[in-house]
């Protein structure tokens, strides 16, 4: 069994419009990859499509999680198989507390005759909230309901920490964050980095990559990766701007 999230020649459409074009990318466990690119180039589509959002039609291609295809799986099955998506715009779930929400997500991973150990669960929850500098009073608040942008993103990383996925896709986790919140969220992600986790960071700005230092940086344009390199590629992109990448796109695309 290969320890990678492997995306091969993925073509994705919304309605009549093709967004991803023969997109390929392999993320081994233990590595952090970053995808940068201008707006409207398909970064968020990639995130939603591999998570199984019903609006995104995969017309061809393959996504293998540790060697197993996940394309026929429901979104919840993909989650339980180890895929986590930190949303760019996390949804509000009124009336459902964070503690109950994460608990329900954990319970969904247990077999029918297993039961979550409540004291151990709360111990773990509080530890991880402390790490992300989330006030413990938040456990009783409804998921994302009335949260600031920074609170929402911290709550996403809290869920990631609690669910311990093998692959995590962070979709514009830096958007809407001030510099302090950005540092806290990044530290949280860095704490979770390790041999058992592959991370794909999707971002528009290089700034986030000062804090979450990637092993590989990919530049995306018009539905595919046009250039890959090490962390210095992000700096280069920052100084040259995105117009430069457009020239890298294949002719006629």
């Amino acid at each position: 069994m290969s320890n990678t999230l492997e995306i091969t020649n993925l073509n994705v459409s919304i309605g009549d419009k093709q967004i991803l074009k023969d997109f390929s990318l392999t993320i081994p466990k233990g590595e952090v990859h970053a995808i940068m690119g201008p707006n409207g180039t398909g970064k968020s589509t990639l995130a939603k499509a591999i998570a199984g959002h019903p609006d995104y039609e995969i017309t061809s291609g393959e996504v293998l999680l540790d060697g197993e295809s996940i394309l026929d799986m429901e979104p919840d099955e993909r989650s339980r198989a180890g895929l986590f998506l930190a949303f760019q715009y996390p949804m509000e779930i009124p009336g459902v507390s964070i503690a109950n929400f994460i608990r329900a997500a954990k319970n969904a991973r247990l077999s029918e005759d297993e039961e979550l150990n409540a004291p151990a669960y709360y111990k773990e929850l509080y530890e991880k909230m402390d790490m992300l500098q989330i006030d413990r009073k938040f456990t009783a608040r409804s998921v994302n309901d009335g949260f600031s942008g920074g609170e929402k993103k911290r709550c996403e990383i809290l869920q990631m920490a609690m669910l311990q996925p093998s692959y995590a896709v962070l979709d514009e986790t830096d958007s809407g964050l001030d510099i302090d919140a950005l540092k806290v969220v990044s530290e949280g992600v860095n704490t979770l980095r390790g041999d058992n986790l592959g991370v794909l960071v999707i971002t528009h700005y290089q700034r986030l990559l000062d804090y979450i230092v990637p092993d590989v940086v990919h530049v995306m344009y018009d539905g595919r990766i046009v250039k890959s390199g090490d962390k210095n590629l992000a700096l280069e992109l920052e100084s040259k701007g995105y117009d430069w990448v457009k020239e890298l796109a294949p002719a006629g695309a």
Binding site: A51, G52, H53, P54, E74, P75, D76, R78, S79, R80, F84, L85, F87, P90, M91, E92, I93, F101, I102, A104, A105, A108, R109, Q159, L163
Partner: peptide, 14 residues
């Protein structure tokens, strides 16, 4: 909202 919850591992019914 349903997709968000499913992404956390809950079935559609849950």
């Amino acid at each position: 909202q349903i997709f968000y919850m499913q992404q956390r591992g809950m079935s559609e019914g849950e």
